[in-house]
Design a protein around this nucleic acid. Sequence first.
DNA 1: CTGTTAGCGCCTTCAT
DNA 2: ATGAAGGCGCTAACAG
Lengths: 340, 340
Amino acid sequence: MKPTVHDIAKSAGVSLATVDRVLNSRPGVRGVTRAKVEEAIVELGYVRDLAAANLAKGRTYSFIFILPENDNSFMIGLHEEVRGAVARSSAERTRIRIIDVPPFDPEALVAALENVLVEKPAGVAFIAVDAPEVRAIAERLREAGIPMVTLVSDLPDSSRDHYAGIDNIAAGRTAGSLMGRFLSGRDATVAVLAGSMLVRDHRERLEGFSAVINEHYSNIVILPVLEGRDDPVLAERMVADTLRRHPDVAGIYSLGGGNRGLIRAIQKADVKRPVVIAHELTGSTRSALGDGVIDAVLNQDAGHEVRSAIRVLKAKADGLPVIAAQERIRIDIFLKDNLP
Amino acid sequence: MKPTVHDIAKSAGVSLATVDRVLNSRPGVRGVTRAKVEEAIVELGYVRDLAAANLAKGRTYSFIFILPENDNSFMIGLHEEVRGAVARSSAERTRIRIIDVPPFDPEALVAALENVLVEKPAGVAFIAVDAPEVRAIAERLREAGIPMVTLVSDLPDSSRDHYAGIDNIAAGRTAGSLMGRFLSGRDATVAVLAGSMLVRDHRERLEGFSAVINEHYSNIVILPVLEGRDDPVLAERMVADTLRRHPDVAGIYSLGGGNRGLIRAIQKADVKRPVVIAHELTGSTRSALGDGVIDAVLNQDAGHEVRSAIRVLKAKADGLPVIAAQERIRIDIFLKDNLP
DNA sequence: CTGTTAGCGCCTTCAT
DNA sequence: ATGAAGGCGCTAACAG
């Protein structure tokens, strides 16, 4: 039989309350007594039953998710996943509140996080904007002991406890390798469509992509980056324009959003289909994969990211370890053949 | 406040015991009484607290994992993952027993499953061998109400509740697409190394691979399949032999095990490096990816499969739904750039 | 400082 | 067929 608090109380010759105080490192226990209890704990190999503890405490983990009110498919999907988690809240003993903020706005993010500091939830998840103010408030959250995970976009070297997202440099490198292989040795010109070079994930993807091309595919020339602001209309115009001015473009790496526009531009253009690699599996990229307009999609599983963030926040709140492999967010590669 | 059994007892004007009988559909309640209780349940929107129920019952889910005592890296890794789950057992209220059986042996598998039928655990997971006897015993397990999930290799159209593994036809197609693209239009000869054509997953991978090559890459000729029995020594000999007799082989698809031998054969051969696509990320395929001997590895995440199997078995045991997206096992594609 | 006691939400004898 | 009471493992007042 697994030992319970009763067993260790008996073994240490104290009462349940004292055992509980020691277990939860609450004050009001003499050093000697504490020592006795701790000894009994290790001796009997006691491990606390979290479910029972939570039941007794009537505990529910209150988490806050700060999400940008962005209208691209990926963010909409992410929102949906969080709402899914909200729907499962009662079964999972969580209470999740969503705070919407304007995208790419450090001030707004800081304000939301300040709010978190007041509310003192059991944990917070947010999509980082890499700015000094954000780092500063994150540090204060850490001091306040509020578990923190960054989602999708990280705040490296900061006080966040965990990052639930992909390695964007690796993603860029992966795109570079695929592009290089798919273009197979021919001299070629490749265009890159990004959202904005001010955003860290986009910068990192470009960095990884360029690095691989420069290292291994010197036959490929990368055109100056197009910044389409993740906007389908703008993206379409920029890509169409590029295809007109560089009819020899043999490849396009779309590392941000606005893929609907990219796809339209390619379909309308009167050129040989370029090799296209894009990010995020959405309705439009999925069907473009099927139609052969896009050749590969790199994806991060938003559902996984959200579930992982919650698991990690719970674990941090309880001071428990996580299963690292389970929380690693993969860089999914989808061809039309392995679509889910 | 979430309603509890007390609330519905009060609302229905009965005692806790009666409520409990209704909740667990136990006999000994008059139709009218039952109706009253059920009405109160829906009216108050009651949902039972599983954690509390399990605490009261002192419940632990007993599961049996039947695993082949295979010595290839993938199976060893799978074993390890199950042992990891065993280590987490107490925290997860599970008790997992592993039964080892000889690989590819329907009789042995049937015997083990017969044992399961006697032991009546809360669920069983096994790597299917596609044989009529296995289907038959699976049917008996279903009749006995024992939740069943197949792992890695499925038993399609059978009575298993769930399959925790990849779609092997899709995996083969994915390999075919990658091979076709990597070889980019050139006329080429491709060799296929399998374990055994008697195993369903291998057959399906070959089927998918061939289909794509035939549909889209008529420039590629596939040599007769080599059956290396997942044995590194045999595989090395067969591949070396093939490379000697067909120095023009431009691609190799290794859809089974024994990759250590494949890698050695390629390294020793005095030919231009072929494009190599293999399955399962192990120590050797990982370093071969790094060395450029293997170009892509298709992988199924054994850890995910095991954790998923357990989640699904638990859910089935409780008659609860699962989060489908969480239980889909991906066909991971690894290049050297996105290694975990 | 330490112990007693009464729950958390549910299940399970044992009576009635 | 129904109900009362005690308990699962842990926590939280409230007394001493």
